[in-house]
Amino acid sequence: MVCPFLCAQSSIQKKQITAVTGLFLILFVLGHLAGNLFIYLGHEAFNGYAQKLAGLRPGLYLVETVLLLIFLIHLYLTALLVWENRQARPVAYRQWQMIGEHSIASRLMPWTGTVIIAFVVWHLRDFTFADGDGPRSILSDGQSYGLYGVVYNAFADPWHSALYILAMAALGFHLSHGIQSFAQTLGFYHPRYTPLIRKMSNGLGLLIALAYSSIPAAVALGCLAVR
């Protein structure tokens, strides 16, 4: 029912729905990041935050369902748009120069998006549904440190960290185009502020990627080791 409805929308509406769902997802990414950063306050704070969040259930189920729905709509629409775009030029150019301020980020959107989907699946398995008190939570002193321990152990593996950082780079790149795209698609333009928004969009994308990536980096540097 939802898909035919979305399918029937005009090109601009599809994009505007994509933009709005994208905004919710950005907010989620920021909220998630804020939670993650509790890790720098030590394992009690971090685990405390995780438990508090868990305590919000069953209300949290509702939020998660809505989030999932938003995510799926965003996904479905972008896939649809990309498919339509492919149809719009049946014969490709032999020679092609990429021009335009946002050409690279824009063209990479489907790819960075795909990386993010793969990451989300992996990430859910890796952390969200991980056993907080299981063997993966035990650090070198032989004690369980809950989710903190799970995260620490995961990032102690350099391959794991590298993949995570790669995914975060994709996320940052996706957002660097997505944020300014949101403004453009919903029709905000101002000769003075739009260049700022475009810069800010790049900056925010980079910042989010860096902030997320700081945790595996910190683990690698030994900053988060339990004394």
Binding site: S10, S11, I12, K14, K15, L81, E84, N85, Q87, A88, R89, M98, I99, G100, E101, H102, S103, S106, R107, M109, H177, Q180, S181, Q184, T185
Partner: peptide
């Protein structure tokens, strides 16, 4: 009408402006 003609969707690449 634009949609009916079979043009693609805008992905804010701004290549149009440059061209």
């Amino acid at each position: 009408q634009m949609d009916k003609e079979g043009f693609g969707n805008c992905s804010n690449a701004y290549a149009c402006e440059a061209a």
